[in-house]
């Protein structure tokens, strides 16, 4: 799973049918070792009502995404599946 920050929203009217009605978020992965944003971009479908600025968990793999969306034919491969409350690091890397 990818640990990242919600840095934006996307609006789209012309899209593949399985994207219609889905909320799209822009996620910037976080490098946990360095403790900073990586500068990369992932566009993911939101299933947990995450908001801008929140830290989230993203599955970025087709099989898991299809499972979450309960649709065997969807071409979505990135889904936000959790909002992180806090992280506790208990051992050194």
């Amino acid at each position: 799973m990818i640990y990242g920050k919600v840095v934006g929203h996307l609006w789209s009217t012309i899209e593949e049918k399985e994207f219609v009605g889905k909320k799209l978020l822009i996620i910037e992965p976080i490098d946990l070792a360095a403790g900073k944003l990586t500068g990369e971009t992932i566009v993911a479908v939101d299933t947990v009502d995450a908001g801008i600025g929140e830290i989230v968990l993203v599955v970025y793999e087709g099989g898991s995404a299809r499972m979450v969306l309960n649709d065997e034919k969807t071409s979505v491969e990135a889904v936000v599946v959790g909002v992180v409350d806090h992280v506790k690091v208990e051992a050194a890397i």
């Binding site: 920050k5 919600v6 840095v7 934006g8 929203h9 996307l10 609006w11 789209s12 009217t13 012309i14 899209e15 593949e16 994207f19 799209l24 822009i26 801008i52 600025g53 034919k73 071409s75």
Partner: peptide, 22 residues
């Protein structure tokens, strides 16, 4: 492209109208 199986590994699936950023 379902039900056809096609050798495609990158597809454009939506046009962005607007983007709101943090």
């Amino acid at each position: 492209w379902i039900p056809e199986e096609a050798p495609i590994d990158l597809a454009i699936v939506g046009i962005v109208d607007k983007m709101e950023k943090l």
